[in-house]
């Protein structure tokens, strides 16, 4: 056997376990899900078929299609807000905070990132709820007479999401910013660029890969999340993940749940190709 063949056999041997795992527990289930999305429900029985009914139902049923619109609206809003809020935060930590305090400042800024997902949403419920800290506080100072309806609305969902993703994006953008050599800004200034021009033409384009990668992760995690809209948004307007969970729990309608998942994945794939050029997932 040649050296190259031996190298290859070794390489395959080492990469095989990971590939097999991903194949068996990710690719295969996905294919099964795809097949199941074309199955039919008869009573509580799943009947294998090649029936696009779940998809036509999705397109025609306003509850189902509306959920996708809700999901998209929330996700786009959350992603945009998070980027806009996180960029300055990351920049302030990277450029204003003295070098020796930077790691601490960053660690603090994202510490609640590490709280349990469920607990974090619950905590926002305590803040935003009818008797929550915000309402009680505002009523105590006389700003409002009646408690605001924040919890169980889209606003609460968005606040909960933005809280989480600002932290995530601060991490990715900060990592991008500190890798930039200070000489870029110096060179730009040296060549006569003002602060705004330096930012607009040099720093911002250089951080674009980090921003896009972070924004994509935000998009993926946000659009697929069940917990935050369920706890904070309640049942007033459903998102796709909430709808999927409803199908699983109430009616055991696995085919419809699968079809909705496929739709969700298609949306994510579209988003992936939309920002594919700048995406560096292997360098997160």
């Amino acid at each position: 056997m040649t050296l190259k063949a031996r190298e290859h056999r070794l390489g395959w041997g080492l990469v095989a376990p990971a590939l097999l795992w991903t194949g068996a527990f990710f690719a295969l289930p996905f294919l099964a899900m795809l097949a199941l999305s074309f199955a039919r429900m008869e009573g509580r029985q799943i009947v294998p078929a090649l029936d696009p009914g779940n998809y036509t139902r999705f397109l025609t049923d306003p509850t189902l299609f509306g959920a996708l619109l809700n999901s998209l609206e929330i996700t786009v809003l959350v992603t945009a807000l998070s980027v806009v809020l996180a960029w300055p935060l990351a920049a302030i930590i990277a450029f204003r905070v003295p070098a020796r305090w930077q790691r601490l400042a960053l660690l603090l800024a994202v510490l609640p990132f590490w709280t349990s997902y469920v607990v974090r949403s619950y905590a926002w419920l305590l803040v935003l709820g009818q008797n929550g800290v915000v309402n009680r506080g505002l009523m105590a100072v006389g700003a409002i007479a009646e408690p605001l309806e924040i919890s169980a609305t889209r606003t609460a969902t968005v606040i909960g999401f933005v809280h989480f993703f600002v932290m995530l994006l601060t991490l990715t953008i900060y990592a991008n910013l500190i890798q930039l050599s200070p000489n870029y800004a110096r060179a730009a200034a040296d060549l006569g660029a003002g602060r705004w021009q330096t930012f607009r033409h040099v720093i911002l384009p250089l951080t674009l890969p980090g921003v896009v990668t972070g924004a994509f992760l935000t998009f993926v995690l946000c659009i697929g999340d069940y917990i935050t809209p369920q706890i904070l948004g309640g049942n007033s307007e459903l998102t796709v993940p909430q709808l999927i969970m409803l199908q699983l729990g109430r009616s055991g309608n696995f085919p419809l749940a699968s079809a909705l998942s496929v739709v969700l994945m298609a949306v994510v794939t579209l988003a992936y190709f939309a920002c594919g050029r700048w995406l560096r997932l292997d360098r997160v």
Binding site: L19, F25, P29, A32, L264, V268, L281
Partner: peptide, 23 residues
């Protein structure tokens, strides 16, 4: 292969869970 190994990162946990539940 790198793409395949990274792929689950781009998919919602919910979909991973549902796929495995089906399986």
């Amino acid at each position: 292969m790198r793409g395949v190994l990274i792929a689950p990162m781009t998919v919602s946990y919910l979909i991973v869970a549902l796929g495995l539940l089906n399986l």
